[in-house]
């Protein structure tokens, strides 16, 4: 789910620009290209709240993030329980920093599959890499209305075995080219996750979804709600911020 997840999270964390477009007949590839090209920003600085719900209850955490382009992101948790913990994503790697133990960990291999703070988002979901079209074959399955908005229904099928989700379906708003809903499937065809994006707003020239709700389709009552509280685009962000030294500070 590498690129796609980044794409989907990117919708929220990495804002995108809405391009006015004529309602011409588009191919699935073009639709997806529009979706992806809308994720380019120079820089991004945001604060967000994540609420994780499972059968044991509800856990809320807050964080602050900075990113530059699509290659580097730094997240620092600001809620009391995990204050000071950081996640750094560079082009090819993910690092975790735990201030209590002063421990800097590099995640590799199967360790990337672990979820971030027990949520439905895994570190693997955050890794960079290929574009959506490189990883998936896409097919336009039609148009459907999601919460009153007209969307293209696009089917994604993995080209190779190293994507996390062999099949996905994404509903992309026909006017704004933002994803409003997606479904992820296991190889057996069983639905694993559903993601709903809403609170779509335009801020400073960019149109973004302020809220994303990821639901586990197998474990009922298990979901993660991710909300952007505040976001600024194209501000000055120092390159040094994304270094390992900064991380352990």
């Amino acid at each position: 789910m590498k690129r796609t997840a980044t794409g989907i999270i990117g919708v929220v964390i990495f804002a995108w620009t809405a391009l006015p477009v004529a309602a011409a007949d588009l191919t699935a590839e073009e639709i997806v290209e529009r979706l992806e090209s809308n994720q380019v920003q120079e820089t991004n600085h945001a604060t967000a709240t994540m609420v994780v719900r499972d059968r044991f209850g509800e856990r809320t955490s807050t964080m602050e993030s900075w990113s530059k382009g699509r290659d580097v992101t730094l997240i620092e948790f600001t809620s009391p329980a995990e204050r000071g913990q950081k996640v750094l994503r560079t082009e090819n790697e993910i690092y975790l920093f735990y201030p209590d133990a002063a421990e800097l960990i590099r995640l590799q291999g199967a360790a990337l599959r672990e979820s971030m703070l027990g949520s439905d988002i895994s570190y693997e979901d955050m890794t960079g890499g290929k574009t959506l079209l490189e990883t998936y074959r896409v097919e336009l399955l039609g148009e459907e209305t999601i919460h009153g908005h007209r969307c293209y229904k696009v089917g994604f099928e993995a080209r190779r075995r190293n994507a996390a989700y062999p099949r996905q379906t994404v509903w992309i708003d026909t006017e704004l080219f933002v994803a409003r809903r997606s479904e992820q499937y296991a190889l057996s065809g069983r639905l694993l996750k559903e993601i709903e994006m809403d609170r779509i707003e335009t801020i400073g020239g960019y149109t973004i979804a302020r809220r994303m709700i990821i639901s586990d389709a197998l474990k009922r009552n298990s979901s993660t709600e991710f909300t952007l509280d505040d976001v600024q685009f194209d501000i000055q962000v120092d390159d040094d911020l994304f270094s390992l030294e900064e991380l352990s500070w």
Partner: peptide, 15 residues
Amino acid sequence: TIVTRTRGGFFQTLE
């Protein structure tokens, strides 16, 4: 139902 990953990395469910 068992949720796991295939050798290549795909999510998979065994019913």
